[in-house]
Design a protein around this nucleic acid. Structure first.
Lengths: 338, 338
DNA sequence: CTGTTAGCGCTTTCAG
DNA sequence: CTGAAAGCGCTAACAG
């Protein structure tokens, strides 16, 4: 129950001085500062964060909405975000949405109720009505950053990689390895990311390969199970493809399992590629060729952008595109071997 | 900028009535309620969460400290925690500690500054001084729950599985499969969980096997890399073991990779077991025998316990032990085959 | 460099 | 069922 008043009396100074001692120690004479700190120590005083937040109208918290925190890609990005937020004095509120728009609305509302100073969206959904922090200035950008799944063009500041180009590179590599019929296993529909990767796959097949063929497109949802299921459907089709490009690593790992169970040799009978380069991709059998997304950079860039937006209302909204690189392992065959 | 006063004037009622309409709608006459809600709607009013938190002296937030959010075991548990918290009207603050005690202290301090109503610790470290919420009643249990890594006996409420028994079961299974020299690859030192699993391994070897042998113990830290490294050390030893019990699945997966690179056949030349049953365990080559931890239940139980503690100061602190089960897959050999 | 003072927006008695 | 009013603990002008 010890509050600022108690401490001020104990130290024989005003409450303002106590406040300053904690907020701006340099604005207080060293001798006074010591008196205050001693008194605070003695009274086991901790400034009340709730009162401070209330008074300053800032929660110093960032809501991060993530479709599924168990997805290793997201958890890596999230870790970098939390790290960056921490370094800048913000805490991270976790909002696992499971893709549920109602959940997203609830979490977004943390902005409206001032329980978060900003929001990062790692999912695909774009909010239509944003509960702006109650400012009358319509020109101030909303403290909202869209990560990975931002549509093009994006109405909000965003951070992502060039998914089209990365998917093109994967498909190009498969073609270079002598593959002709390359299936694509998609992520969730309506996801800009899925659309972009699909466009890259298509362009590569049309420019460099045998042309694209919609019968080579299979649905998926980024889960291990979806990868396994897709393989079952792929193998049931009349003419097998000779390669499968899974739109994320988890599906590729599920797919490898499905292929193993079906007795299909990878990469000899079927080449397999993924996307993301999660930690496990290096440990599959065979090791997975994939696209390395700069997870740490993505998280850092997004959080930095958001906090800049919050703290400096003049920061112009940006759409940052980071580099991704193709990581060639053994699941797509060895050089020199068809 | 629209606040409770604006709404009260618009609706022609007092601020108290507006407050009640949002807090306890049933305490307000239906006709009044409608007036208020209409006015709130018109003014686009959102109650200020910071003011509310300040006034009620509650943040409605739970700090969850986790050593590494990228670990699939933790992220699964965390997801269940967030779900449970959400259902009970709490948000989750993410505190990735990377095992750093200073970080842990900082996060723990959220209690002291009232920025969190409770703390869950998923790491091994036990706080010595807890910044109690400022109550004078020394008998009130601190809103702190220790998960998975709680020492025995635990000074705090806790949730965990019986690690000793589970490790015993793994080792027993390996012995039953005809293995004689069973190596153990540990988790972080000083972790109660590591100690318990080691004790189970040791007891099984002594009661059912050839006796335990400290030269079969290898250090680890729960990362993929650690598993791979441990295999290198194991294979460099004079006499190979014929089985390896990794104390978590990630190390086991790293270990499988190391064994593959060394040309050791699993399970024929070396049986491998893990611990946790993360989603990827079913998709390794060969599929991993492991201990299934009830991740969802652990998360739910811990969060429920903590919130009960917060909301009902009479809840007695408990130490909950949940069931874990051995999941036998192919990495430890097939029945009937030595 | 320090003190005085006025609230921030809301909840919560306490009366009526 | 509703209103009046006090005040949570702190910060930030402003004045000295």
């Amino acid at each position: 129950m010890t509050n600022i008043k108690t401490v001020s009396e104990l130290a024989g100074v005003s409450v303002a001085t106590v406040s300053r001692t904690f907020q701006f120690p340099e604005k207080v004479a060293p001798s006074t500062r010591e008196k205050v700190l001693a008194a605070a120590e003695r009274a086991r005083y901790r400034p009340d964060g709730l009162a401070r937040n209330f008074r300053t109208r800032r929660s110093n918290a960032i809501m991060v909405m993530v479709p599924n925190i168990s997805n290793p890609f997201f958890s890596e990005v999230l870790r970098a975000m939390q790290e960056t937020a921490f370094d800048r004095g913000y805490s991270v509120l976790l909002g696992d949405t499971q893709g549920d728009p109602e959940r997203e609305r609830t979490y977004l509302d943390f902005l409206g109720t001032r329980q978060a100073d900003g929001v990062i969206q790692l999912g695909a959904h774009v909010p239509t009505t944003l509960p702006f922090p109650r400012t009358d200035d319509e020109n101030v950008a909303a403290p909202f950053v869209h990560v990975c799944e931002a549509p093009t063009p994006s109405p909000f500041p965003s951070v992502r990689i060039n998914n089209e180009a990365a998917a093109f590179a994967v498909t190009q590599h498969l073609i270079a390895m002598g593959r002709h019929r390359i299936a694509a296993v998609l992520g969730p529909k309506n996801s800009p990311l899925t659309a972009d990767r699909l466009a890259g796959w298509k362009r590569a097949l049309e420019e460099l390969g045998a042309g694209s063929d919609d019968s080579l497109i299979y649905e998926g949802d980024f889960t291990l199970q979806a990868g396994q299921d897709a393989v079952a459907r792929i193998l049931a089709a009349a003419a097998h493809p000779d390669a499968i490009f899974f739109f994320n690593d988890e599906m590729a790992i599920g797919g490898l399992q499905g292929l193993k169970e079906a007795g299909i040799a990878v990469p000899d009978d079927m080449a397999v590629a993924g996307f993301d380069d999660i930690a496990f991709a290096r440990f599959t059998e065979p090791a997975l060729t994939t696209v390395r997304q700069p997870k740490k950079q993505i998280g850092e860039a997004a959080m930095t952008m958001l906090i800049d937006l919050i703290e400096d209302k003049n920061t112009p909204p940006q759409n940052t595109v980071l580099d991704a690189s193709l990581v060639i392992r053994t699941s797509t065959g060895q050089a020199g071997k068809p």
